[in-house]
Design a protein around this nucleic acid. Structure first.
Lengths: 188, 188
DNA sequence: CAGTATAGTAAACAAAAGTTCACTCTGTCA
DNA sequence: TGACAGAGTGAACTTTTGTTTACTATACTG
């Protein structure tokens, strides 16, 4: 039998909500709500769950991943009490309401570690600071590049992070749509 | 006034649960539960919420980010009905119960786009296929490298994804602890 | 072996949750 | 101008929830 915290995690992941007491009866295969009540209190003490304004809510430990920090020599692999948990969504996404995801095509940003097939998190906004990676429309064409400004002409232009591409000076216009806040890449 | 869906998103993000009807009264500043009832039904139709075994649950649209796929020429920026939503946690993490996060130090994996300061998602297991990026202990030292096997001696060894490092042949032993499933990097 | 902690059953219950009904107010538009 | 839709009020009501109490069985401990 899978242990109960695992069942609970699965339920939370699948439904994006915690089961009610009566649902836990079935989930854990017990017949008394008091059994559930006791489990829950134990889990609250252990940090898997918490009481939030009197209502049951999952704690980080239930849905986030253990975060081991920097790998160092005497590194005790998962000593059960790591204490630190990190949710990638929280870590990567600053302002969810103005962000979206984009799949990258092409190799023009390899220099900064953005490859074909990667997914970037873009935060919508009309301007950007120099040197940041922007999603822009240059002469009606969408692209992902680094924003630069010409010292003498004071005009903005785009550069790839890959020496095999030339710089991109707009013939007509250059519009910024957002800045790249993060990249993620899955292997295989 | 912030619009209500935004308030709801904030609540969900902050508490990892949906508010109850009575909490929504305060949150939305209304005084009748029926008002809430109607809002909820509208949101269910719009795809922000859903009914899961009779219980209210958030739908992807409430907590995940819009996913625009590959950037292409006539690309309509967020045409409001994108239909596709992606949660990074779901996308990146295969098996939460055997995964953990590690912050990367050093430049030995730059060749595959893993830089100092990046966070990798590691899935615990004792073995790995050749060519994958592994978390391993080579002669008592922890490291992140690519797993290889010598054709003639049939022995496993590690290689960096950076030409400036030599290959690593274990003097004594080589232990695999997991494979790197994904990387994430935040800019700035 | 007595003694105590742990995990469960069973039943009872107040509080809260979600739903429904009837009604009001306001703005829109034909 | 009148009617209709949208958004909200207020109250009543049923069901479910989470909690409590009392008791049982099993296992562990000194």
């Amino acid at each position: 039998m899978t242990d109960r915290i695992t069942l609970l995690k699965h339920f939370y992941k699948k439904h994006s909500r915690l089961p009610s007491y009566s649902e836990m009866l079935k989930l854990f295969n017990v017949s008394s709500k008091n059994a559930v009540f006791k489990m829950i209190n134990k889990w609250i003490e252990e940090g898997f769950l918490k009481k939030d304004e009197g209502k049951l809510a999952p704690a980080e430990k239930l849905f986030a991943l253990p975060y081991l920090g920097v790998i160092k020599a005497g590194f005790p692999i998962l000593a059960e009490e790591n204490k630190e948990y990190l949710s990638l969504d929280d870590y990567l996404i600053g302002d969810p309401s103005s962000s979206f995801l984009l799949k990258v095509s092409g190799d023009s940003m390899e220099g900064v570690g953005i490859f074909e097939g990667d997914i970037v998190i873009v935060e919508k906004k009309r301007d950007a600071s120099l040197g940041t990676i922007v999603l822009a429309q240059i002469d009606r064409e969408w692209t992902l590049k680094i924003l630069r400004r010409d010292r003498s002409t004071r005009k903005y232009y785009l550069v790839a992070a890959n020496p095999k591409y030339p710089d991109f000076y707009p013939h007509e216009d250059l519009q910024i749509f957002g800045t790249v806040k993060a990249v993620v890449r899955k292997f295989n």
